[in-house]
Design a protein around this nucleic acid. Structure first.
Length: 558
RNA sequence: UGACCCAUGGUGUAAUUGGCAACACAUCUGAUUUUGGUUCAGACAUUCUAGGUUCGAGUCCUAGUGGGUCAACCA
């Protein structure tokens, strides 16, 4: 993650460092709300917070922003921790919770009331909304704004004691109802919620709002740089106002543009809809933008980190092409994936001059990019499976695969020449008959035959059936949320999952580990799925290999 | 009819802070290849517009244009 250039956050930090601020200490935090699963957008926030701190010898806290008991749950706490660990980051000490500070926050609130900087408002939610005004029209003061300090204090204590119903009153900061910034118009900072909290149980029936919890938690933890996304920019004046009035540690909020990736969505609500309405099979469906989904898809955490790095940090809106992510995923996988042969749409190849009943073991290189990855054996005999697409009766020019009277190399084995074929009633090819050159064995070829193409194959007798789950982008539009007149679900890609249960794999595939990256040669990168059973191994397509032949043909046909 | 943020190839970020617009991805050419993969070489920009300051502006100033954000007892 080394870079010569500094992003704007690093520039700010280096300036602070130069000025000797906080004694050169750098401390960031990642503050998820435990109400959903982490997605690619969170990965960026995690990356920025952890990497920035690391770069300057600082620390990063994990703090759950758990101030709304209605939506939050411990289940999410565990999955979030797990995802952060998977991404390769270690937070400082134990995981922290805003709810750990409820007592302190309550004291801060009383302090504000005592300073006549907060008041209990007995207006209804509707009345408060009405008095708020609009962005172009100033708000009006609440009739309770000048309520005596003692009265507010008494009411606030009784709020805590549970004397009042939800919604009957709130605590508001006394800022400025005529501010251009809506958040400064006497924001609600405490509300009554008779609800059980995942951490504090029934101890509290009043809970602080985000604006009265987040900045204060930063301050309590001594966070020096509180890095968040652009939509919080309007909160900054309030963030600073509270720090100033409370006279607490001055954490500094800095906002960056969150990362948007084409064909992916990062809205918790909409991700939930995909799950609940069965457009996908759970939060960890390999098509999901969740970290658990991408992990199951076979993305390496390293690739996600690299992606976050390469896409940079700035303040302008962005929509990053998915090709960049795919390119990085391929690049990382290319270096480590074990090569195996799997025929996805098999037809029989019969070698007429190969002795019946005979078979031999050939050597297959595990990874041409990494000699230390070794080799494995492959069985070869008279009857093989090859791809339907690798044989054509009447091939176009520059078709380097098998065709009548044409030669092709069987990867890691011999050169064969097609002679005839058989079809079914519908004209589909069922068998191809060929002859092989016994002196063309891979590595010791003295046949002198020149071939243009090499195809993959699998020994018919020893092959095993496997299920392939081939994934494509979840949406047909790069920005499914960017259409005011259309619901994002209209762009759901019905072909985002195509199950292939007719593939034939070399036997070696059964011996690979559950998390071992694989390359099905000439096809794509795959990873074993948790749905595998001993009788039916299942593999997820992580990403297909680049296919310039297919691309060229597609371009031609258009 | 407000306030705030933003504007550099198709996309995303750079530009040693005022000094030859760079990198990656994408696209197109070509070479290599026992994966049509990988690898290698090459091509691809009037820095939103108009003024201004300056020997010199992507960078500073002014005005405009365009995009985004803000009215939850959500975070």
């Amino acid at each position: 993650m080394e870079r010569e250039n500094r992003n704007f956050i690093e520039e700010i930090i280096e300036k602070d460092l130069d000025e000797g601020k906080h004694g050169g200490r750098i401390h960031t935090r990642f503050p998820p709300e435990p109400n959903g699963y982490l997605h690619i957008g969170h990965a960026k926030a995690i990356f920025i917070n952890f990497e920035t701190a690391k770069k300057y010898g600082g620390k990063t806290n994990l703090r759950f922003d758990d101030t709304n008991p209605i939506t939050e749950d411990t289940e999410y706490v565990e999955s979030i921790k797990n995802d952060i660990r998977w991404l390769g980051y270690k937070w400082e000490g134990e995981a922290l919770f805003a709810s750990d500070y409820f007592e302190q926050l309550y004291d801060y609130a009383e302090e504000l009331i005592s300073k006549s900087l907060a008041y209990v408002d007995s207006s209804s939610p509707e009345e408060i909304a009405e008095m708020k005004g609009t962005p172009t029209r100033p708000g009006t003061n609440s009739p309770f704004r000048e309520r005596p300090v003692e009265e507010s204090l008494d009411l606030f204590r009784r709020m805590r004691a549970g004397e009042f119903e939800d919604g009957s009153m709130v605590l508001r900061a006394k800022v400025d109802m005529s501010s251009n910034n809506m958040l400064m118009r006497d924001p609600v900072i405490y509300r009554i919620k008779h609800a059980s909290h995942h951490n504090t149980g029934d101890k509290w029936c009043i809970y602080p709002m985000y604006d009265f919890a987040h900045g204060q938690s930063d301050s309590i933890e001594g966070i020096t740089h509180s890095l968040c996304s652009l939509e919080f920019i309007h909160h900054r004046p309030l963030y600073n106002w509270l720090i100033e009035k409370l006279e607490i540690f001055p954490s500094r909020q800095i906002e960056f543009a969150r990362m948007n990736v084409a064909y992916m969505i990062t809205s918790k609500r909409r991700l939930l809809k995909l799950v609940e309405e069965n457009y996908v099979n759970g939060w960890d469906d390999p098509r999901m933008s969740t970290l658990s989904g991408m992990r199951r898809r076979g993305f390496l955490s390293k690739s996600i980190r690299r992606f976050c790095d390469v896409t940079g940090v700035a303040k302008r809106d962005n929509l990053i092409e998915m090709e960049l992510l795919e390119s990085i995923v391929r690049d990382d996988l290319n270096a480590v994936a074990t090569r195996v042969m799997v025929v996805t749409d098999p037809i029989k190849l019969i070698i007429s001059n190969y002795p019946e009943g005979h078979s031999e073991n050939l050597t297959s290189v595990n990874n041409p990019e990494d000699e230390s990855a070794g080799t494995h054996d492959m069985s070869f005999s008279r009857e093989l499976w090859i791809e339907r697409g690798d044989f054509m009766i009447d091939p176009p020019k520059k078709y380097f695969r098998l065709a009548p009277e044409k030669h092709v190399r069987l990867k890691g084995a011999y050169i064969v020449k097609a002679e005839s074929y058989k079809t079914d009633e519908e004209g589909n090819i069922t068998e191809v008959h060929c002859v092989y050159a016994p002196d063309s064995k891979s590595g010791e070829d003295i046949s002198g035959i020149k071939v243009k193409g090499t195809i993959h194959w699998v020994d018919a007798r020893s092959s095993v059936a496997v299920e392939l789950r081939n994934y494509d982008r979840l949406f047909t539009d790069p920005n499914p949320l960017g259409h005011e007149d259309k619901d994002f679900i209209e762009f759901y890609n019905k072909e985002s999952l195509i199950v292939n249960d007719g593939a034939k794999a070399e036997k070696y595939l059964l011996t690979v580990g559950d998390t071992e990256p694989l390359q099905f040669m000439r096809k794509g990168y795959y990873i074993k799925d948790k749905d595998s059973s001993p009788g039916c191994p299942v593999f997820n397509l992580t990403i297909g290999l680049r296919d310039s032949w297919a691309k060229k043909n597609k371009a031609k046909s258009q």
